[in-house]
Amino acid sequence: MKRKKKDDSAENWSYKNDYPIEEVWNTDNYLAGVIADRLKAFKALEKHGYCPAFKGMAEWNKAIQKMIDAFELLKHITSFSEEEEKIIEEGLELFCRHYRYLWD
Results as ranks from 00 to 15, higher is better:
L74R: 15
H48S: 15
H48E: 15
A70Q: 11
F80T: 10
M67T: 04
A70F: 11
L73N: 04
E83P: 03
E83A: 08
A53P: 01
S81Y: 01
W60L: 08
M67G: 00
C51L: 10
L73H: 04
A58H: 12
T78Q: 08
E85F: 09
K75C: 14
E46T: 02
A63H: 01
N61M: 02
S81R: 07
F54T: 12
K55H: 13
P52Y: 02
E85N: 14
I64K: 06
M57Y: 01
K47E: 09
A53G: 06
G56V: 03
G56E: 02
A63M: 11
L73E: 05
E46K: 05
A53C: 03
F54D: 12
I77H: 13
K55C: 12
E72Q: 09
K86N: 10
P52D: 05
G49R: 10
I88G: 01
C51S: 13
I77D: 14
S79F: 12
E83Q: 07
C51I: 07
I87S: 00
C51T: 09
T78L: 09
E85T: 12
P52S: 05
C51E: 04
K47H: 09
K66T: 09
W60P: 00
L73C: 00
N61G: 02
S81G: 02
A53M: 09
L45Q: 14
E46I: 06
L45K: 14
H76W: 01
Y50P: 07
F80C: 11
A70Y: 13
A63Q: 00
A70T: 12
K75G: 12
I64N: 04
G56D: 02
Y50T: 09
K55E: 15
C51A: 14
H48D: 15
Q65C: 11
A53D: 11
D69T: 08
M67S: 05
E72N: 07
M57R: 06
E82D: 12
M57F: 08
H48P: 13
H48R: 13
I77N: 15
M57V: 00
F71R: 03
C51G: 10
M57T: 04
F71D: 06
I64D: 01
S81C: 03
E84Q: 08
P52T: 01
E82K: 02
L74A: 12
L73R: 04
L45A: 14
K75L: 10
E83N: 08
I88H: 06
H76R: 11
W60D: 07
H76D: 13
G56H: 02
A58C: 09
I68C: 05
M57A: 04
Y50D: 05
Q65D: 10
E72V: 15
L45C: 12
F54C: 08
M57E: 10
N61C: 02
H48V: 09
I88W: 00
K55Q: 14
A53Y: 03
E72C: 10
E84C: 02
S81M: 00
I68G: 06
I64H: 03
L73T: 08
M57W: 08
E82S: 06
C51H: 10
S79I: 13
M67V: 06
N61P: 00
L45Y: 07
